[in-house]
Design a protein around this nucleic acid. Structure first.
Lengths: 127, 127
DNA sequence: CCTGTTGTACGAATATCTTCGTAAACAAAT
DNA sequence: ATTTGTTTACGAAGATATTCGTACAACAGG
């Protein structure tokens, strides 16, 4: 049942905000967006309307001020983008991606430990 | 001196082919591209010409048939895309990306071992 | 030399994304 | 009731990406 999700860069930013905040109005999203980006209010509005048309967002239009919510899950979207990336840029090798990610992004000892435990789990299941 | 590389989806496909094959003609690239995608020859040509203008490819035009080569390294490009992805889709957590990559892409025991060794290295350096 | 093949160059049509101006609907305040 | 502010709707302009038709140059075989 997995849909072919392909959000653009701008759409991804909006999705990120909605995943964090949950259901929100255009203004709420716009105010967060403004902190990292220059954009007019109607631009954000239009984007979110289009995302709604595409099925990326749901909206509750019962009140005057509409409430939008992400219609695609963060996990699903992450997976889609990850797969494509591994495929086109890492020759299909997830291992390479993992090592590069570990190499360039400082992880805390606790995180490293978390990953180690995860690796152990993986190996148990492999039998 | 890292340039701001931002290849489009189509450009990425072509880069992937050139990284694998090394320097190639348009026809060679096109023939590989055709296996996974519907496209005319002149479309591929135009794309590669534009990529050359953008500085994504170098070309040797001394012979009638031009030879193109990737002008950006796979590693550099991977890093750029990885950074952006961790940032926008994984809330900045490389750890989460790593675990999702491990979870959904079966890795061989040898690969898991490789990652484990890499983790050990990381922890030593952290002292 | 003519002809068919292969290649590049150019330009244009199409699609998609991004941005925002303007208008209309609505509510709250004066 | 008029004004003011907030919101959605609409449409269009600008930017970028994608696709390909057509023309022209180089070359190979006859």
């Amino acid at each position: 049942m997995n849909k072919h999700i392909k959000p653009t860069e701008s759409e991804l930013e909006i999705l990120g905000i909605l995943w964090e905040k949950g259901a929100s109005t255009v203004r709420e999203v716009h105010e967060i967006l403004e902190q990292s980006k220059e954009a007019g209010y109607t631009t954000t509005l239009k984007l979110m309307q289009i995302m709604h048309e595409k099925g990326l967002l749901t909206r509750d239009a019962s009140a005057k001020t509409h409430i939008y919510e992400a219609a695609v899950s963060r996990e699903n979207t992450q997976q889609q983008l990850l797969n494509k990336m591994i495929d086109t840029v890492y020759k299909g090798s997830a291992t390479q991606l993992v090592m590069q990610a570990l190499g360039h992004h400082r992880s805390s000892p606790a995180e490293l430990e978390q990953i180690r435990r995860y690796l152990n789990e993986m190996e148990k299941k492999q039998s």
